[in-house]
Amino acid sequence: MASIKLSDVSLKFPLSYDARSLRADLLTGFKTQNKNFSFISALQDINLEVKDGEKIGIVGSNGSGKSSLLRIISKIFKPTEGIVKTEGKLLTMLDLNTGLQMESSGLENIYLISYLRGYKKKDINQFIKKVIEYSELGEAIYKPVRTYSSGMITRLSASMVLCFPSEILVLDEFISAGDNDFHKKFEKHMLEKIEEANILLFASHDHNMVDNICTKKVYMNHGKIVRIVNLKETF
């Protein structure tokens, strides 16, 4: 059973306006804040409980805190205050092309990205055929990624997302990929993957998409949750 619980979570980002001085910090014993240094409140008093089976869509304008919230849940950021508890294997897709190595082949990149995401060789061997099949890259899978068009790179990365096993799926502004034919196929598989996922967290500006695939819609503004709307009944 997967679950996520955020209690009174706040996140403050340091904002540096100029280069930090090592000499100044050494002289002050790293205690005082530089006068040109300030913080921005990215998240404030977030309370959110996500149960197994729930698909959460997070909407809000740019800078409302959607991506910071996803990074907190994905354990990339540690909250300044509050507690985050997650149960279940997380798959975070904040940027589709993270970690791709241009000189390596598509096949080598599947291994490389999978290792970076914490999968073991025996796990990778179980899903690698599926990734190759989904990507429809054919013989190009053995060619260096630098020879790929941007559409082919997207196919490769998107196919990996579809095949990585996970219980909690964290997506940031990403649900469609590739050219028209691949787009349709990918969207179909992606919706199946979302359906299979125990929990989905999906940050987007596309309200229609959120309404179609999510069970709850979370509205964010200035780092706060301003409204939660139930869209569908969960089982």
Binding site: E103, S104, Y111, L112, G118, K120
Partner: peptide, 20 residues
């Protein structure tokens, strides 16, 4: 415990550097 994460990726980095 996750030695594959850095072991294989470091080898891959080196190989890709001299690939051409």
């Amino acid at each position: 415990y996750n030695w594959e994460t850095w072991y294989y990726t470091s080898w891959s980095d080196l190989v890709s550097k001299y690939k051409r």
